[in-house]
Structures are given as C-alpha cells and as structure tokens.
Amino acid sequence: MTATKEHVTIKGNKDGLVFLFNDHCEFPDLLSELQYKLEKSHQQILSGPTIDVHIKLGERELDVQQEEEIKKLVGHHGNLLIQSIESTPKEQIEKNIHQDLKIMNGIVRSGQSIHEDAPILFMGDVNPGGMISSNGDIYVMGALRGLAHAGKNGNKDAIIAASYMRPTQLRIANIVSRSPDESANEGAYMEFAYLDEDHMQVGKISELHKVRPVALQF
C-alpha cells in the first residue's frame, strides 16, 4: 500500500469498531485493502475479546454477493462480530432535507395538541387552548392564537414564526413568554419569535435573515 488515499478507515467508538468504506473506489480494491488491514497492519485488534463491528458504506450499495464477501472476510477473524452494514443512498440524502420539515395542515383546536420532533410547517390556525410543539422550528401559515413550543428538547436556536401572531404563550426551549396583558393587544402579522440571550424577542419576518442566516434549523 503506497501513499494512495485510504479506502478503508477503521475507527473505534463506545459501541466497538466502525469501518468506514470509501464509496468512490472499485469494490475489489476495497476488499483487498480490508484484507490487508485486517491481516497485516491492524493485527492487534484481532486478538482479545469479541468486538462489535459497524460497517458504513457511504453512498455505495452492495449486492448480496458483495455483502457476503465482506461478511466472510471480517467473520474470518473470530473476535469480530458484524452488527450492521449501512449505506446511505444518494437519493435518500437529498430526500432527508425535505423530510426533516414536517408539513401539516388543519386546525389545532382547544384541547388538541400536536408534537413533531422535526420542524413543523403548519398550514392552518392554532386556536387558544391548542398546542403545537416541536424539537425544531415552528412555522404557522395561519393564525397562532394558542401555545407554541419550539426547541422542546432544549434547542435555544429554534424559532416560532406565524402569519398572524397572537399567542396565549410562546415557549422556546425552557424559556416561557406570554403575550402582554393589555386586552387592546391586537396581534401582529408576519412575525417570528426567537431567543436572544435567554430572552424572548419578536421581530418581523423580514428581519429573520439577520437572526438566522440559514433558513432551517434542525
């Protein structure tokens, strides 16, 4: 093995060993390097207690035969136990970006609540007594009159945006804010709420890019 880029990288973590396979090289090259590493350069890992192995293939997809070859090679060394062989196909990577924003519609009425781990784009109203919550951002295309809780798992970078903002209460991470008591408060259009040093701030949507240069926060 000369100074070419490595095809197989072996890393250790708390679960055992992670084999990272380069997804741009030819499969036989990969296989031979794996064999070389297991038998020559990384012999020290082959003695001792059983080790779990997770194989990450990158964007490469294996057919049954190729998978079998890898299993055979690794399994050949008694103390290595393959736990998983994962690949993340290209399309899926692109799809994830869209899937991560959960788009929903309807009306969240009094007594109803919705929660998603992903950021929510909600098309409809959230009425007083209703609750919408997410670990990420919340965007309401409609009137937000109820309670919205963004960054529920503690993400203080999350924001809450609404076409019409007149919430009973806003929560971002563990910070709670309620609307002013003046009943004359009419609510406002196209606003978003965010945390600035643990204080809830509200701004016009047009100012969002200043607080958040990247549109979506996960």
Partner: peptide, 10 residues
Amino acid sequence: VRDADRVIGL
C-alpha cells in the same frame, strides 16, 4: 367560544 372550539374538535 373556547368551549365551542373544544367541542368542534371532539
């Protein structure tokens, strides 16, 4: 109105 909203949901 609040109660009506709840009932509509139900």
